[in-house]
Design a protein around this nucleic acid. Structure first.
Lengths: 341, 341
DNA sequence: CTGAAAGCGCTAACAA
DNA sequence: TTGTTAGCGCTTTCAG
């Protein structure tokens, strides 16, 4: 469907040139007040809505940004979208959404398309598979403003909005240790994601600070596939020297961890304590309620988009120095209680 | 950012006309094989990506659709987005996402913009505030294909993808009755949403079929605001003649229901049984695990977008007869168990 | 098989 | 103050 009433219609109707109409609509000072009035009135009466693409073509901008996410069925991303959409609406930008479903090739294809002028900027969280960044660098080099949030790409010198992942990993680990855990496993989603690695570094540091020996086998790489990750977790917990503490670095591992424990007859927090990086609204009503490290998702989305829009409005704005690190917060609940209730 | 290498660049470089380049790129049969080869090769080498808006302007279509949702922090919508995005990617369409945050005026403003030619079609779930539909009708009348899903607008004669809401309401109620509930309250989100009303009708019918008198005070209208809805629920449960069964017609009321019970020292399912319309991945690990009516969210998103794309490809495709009703499924869990475990 | 030319709807110099 | 004109990048008759 395409709008049929254009600037031309108005011009004809009013016996003025299309240039006059265009300027009048933009309320430019070099147009007579009377004419302006007439134009605006007719435009309103005829319900004229300008075609954004025509103007965009001329002005060489689309007033739309791309939002590239691994998935949307994750509380963090859901909340982040809210923050992003809110500021976009405020700034009168439109947002195209793309899901990579953690597929690197999809991410490549999506980014490639952006060289077309479809969007003025991109907001993204990379795939857990993404380990090479040429496709992103290429886009960035072509002049596209890019802002990363949460799952950032370290090697690209642009704005990154993250949480204090190292500290988060540290805090989570220290908390488990404080609760008496001796053997803590970390469920990781990727070896290439900086977010994963930083959390792991925090974990290692906490272990070290507490004179607990780090064992590589305590890091378990879980798959994006729900069933596979369930099996990995179950295997981990079936082992004779199973961990007594688990850190899920990704929200989606939570349900599987709980289910695996149930299946194996392991009690949380009695047999194994669990802490999860998550924004689950149901955290307080889980069985047992879940201790979480939560990220200010909405604010992060808001911050990321705000930075991007700033860059879009000022020419030659330096994205490189706009990175922000926002603290995450530890909320202690039942899954790490020191006594079974 | 805007692409600098255009069809013109290629034409100049190869000493052919832009028309030739355009046709060659589209692999049209009236272009010499040799020329085609040359064009394609150079295009590839120079990494030429056509500007979608330029072509769109000419062809009068944007190859993009709008997705208008009340919110995204709801498992149903999250999953639906996946289904939609998947088919869009497959059909090479792009999707603009808009959130109304349950605001009617926002919905109006968003739809109005669509008259501009920005999108070729729209997929939407209406606001809980939406009770008048002129803004939608107007857009539809202007020729815009619209497909509703989940929260549909009954009065507009176009495709609607829904679940069997009446049956869902009936099933939920019957289940509670079967579990021994005598007084069942229904948490509703809106009086204008057909989805809400249908579920309520199913509820009433089940009550009636079981010779239980319906009492208007058992329908509690909850607010979109979390705190307000919490208070409504608490108030409901504090009453001397409180219900012994609760049906949450919207996922987001679940946490508040659980928390209110906890606060009041009421046990689920002992004191009050709870069933929720929801797609919560954490349903099985809640305390107690939650009995749900779940909708095939991904499939619904997929179905809705498939219908829309069909309409977009065939001219004069009759959307009116493409409505689909997909069954929801009842999954019984702990929150409606007949004996406290 | 190839190219010239018109045009999608709008903006922006530059004239008048 | 208003209009003319030349595009933005691409598609598409219609001639050659």
């Amino acid at each position: 469907m395409y709008n049929n009433i254009t600037i031309k219609t108005l011009a004809k109707e009013l016996n003025v040139s299309i240039a006059t109409v265009s300027k009048a609509l933009k309320d430019r000072h070099d147009i007579g007040v009377a004419t302006k009035q007439r134009v605006v009135e007719l435009a309103h009466k005829l319900n004229y809505i300008p075609n954004p693409y025509a103007g965009g073509l001329r002005k060489r901008k689309s007033k739309t940004i791309a939002l590239v996410l691994p998935e949307v069925a994750d509380s963090f991303f859901s909340l982040a979208i809210n923050g992003i959409e809110a500021t976009a609406q405020e700034k009168e930008y439109h947002v195209l959404i793309y899901l990579t479903h953690e597929s690197f090739t999809k991410e490549q294809a999506i980014l490639k398309d952006f060289q077309s002028g479809r969007v003025d900027g991109v907001l993204m969280s990379i795939t857990s598979e993404t380990s090479t960044h040429n496709h992103i660098q290429e886009l960035y080099d072509s002049g596209m403003p890019i802002v990363f949030f949460d799952r950032v790409c370290e090697s690209i010198d642009t704005a990154k909005i993250t949480t204090d992942d190292f500290e988060g990993g540290y805090k989570a680990t220290q908390h488990l240790i404080d609760c008496g855990c001796k053997k803590i496993a970390l469920l990781s989603i990727s070896t290439s994601l900086s977010i994963s690695n930083k959390r792991m570094e925090g974990y290692k540091k906490a272990l070290d600070d507490n004179h607990i020996k780090f064992s590589p086998s305590d890091i378990v790489q879980c798959s994006n596939d729900a069933e596979k990750s369930y099996n990995s977790i179950k295997k981990l917990l079936s082992h004779r020297s199973r961990p007594d503490g688990i850190i899920a670095t990704v929200e989606k591992f939570t349900t599987n961890t709980y289910l695996a424990c149930k299946e194996l007859g392991l009690f949380i927090p009695g047999d194994v304590k669990v802490i999860s990086f998550s924004n689950l609204p149901t955290a307080p009503i889980l069985n047992p309620s879940l201790t979480t490290i939560t990220q200010p998702a909405f604010e992060m989305g808001k911050a990321a988009s705000t930075v991007l829009f700033k860059a879009l409005n000022k020419s030659s704005f330096n994205l490189k120095q706009e990175s922000i690190v926002i603290p995450s917060v530890l909320t202690v609940r039942g899954s790490t209680a020191t006594q079974t209730k």
